[in-house]
Computed example of a mutant assay.
Amino acid sequence: MSSPPVHGVAVGPETRCAHYRTDRDIVAFKFACCECYYPCFRCHEERTDHEAVPWPRDRFDEPSVLCGVCDTTLSVPNYLEADYRCPACDAAFNPGCGAHAALYFETGASDQ
């Protein structure tokens, strides 16, 4: 099975992009607005003509996070519980992504 396409700016084979290029920047997130994977919110902003919509809480059981090393897709709970490591290949994920979690996953903090 082939991996889903990852859109963005200067996306490399392990999903690193022009904005985040460390050895741990190897995940891509699916946005609910377009059902497409992007390495980061900045890539989504630069490559689309619409507002980003984080992955909705009522779909957390669906795969929406992609490991750029082994192409495993994870649900939000699986990703969040993995302690910044891919449960399939043990590649290290960037813990800094946690600072942007609300941009990728619906937090339920507001009732907009």
Rank of each mutant, 00 (worst) to 15 (best):
R24V: 04
Y37F: 15
Y37W: 10
Y79R: 08
N78D: 15
C17G: 06
S2L: 03
R59V: 07
D58P: 00
V6L: 03
C17A: 07
F31K: 13
E45M: 10
E51R: 12
C17I: 04
A18P: 00
W55Q: 05
I26Q: 09
C34R: 08
T107R: 11
G8C: 02
S2Y: 07
F93N: 01
A28Q: 09
E81V: 00
P63I: 02
D25K: 14
C67D: 09
G98C: 02
A101Q: 09
T73Y: 00
A52W: 13
D25M: 08
A10E: 15
F29D: 10
P63W: 07
E45C: 08
T72E: 13
M1T: 05
L80P: 00
P87A: 02
H7F: 14
G12H: 08
R85I: 02
P56N: 10
L80N: 07
C34Q: 09
K30L: 05
Y79V: 05
G98P: 14
A32E: 14
N78F: 00
G68E: 10
A18I: 01
A99I: 01
V27H: 05
T73I: 00
C40R: 07
F29S: 05
R16C: 02
A32N: 15
R42T: 13
P77I: 06
A101P: 00
H7Y: 15
Y37I: 10
A92E: 11
V65I: 15
T48R: 11
G98A: 01
A18L: 12
I26G: 06
A10V: 01
V11Y: 00
A88G: 03
Y38Q: 11
R42S: 10
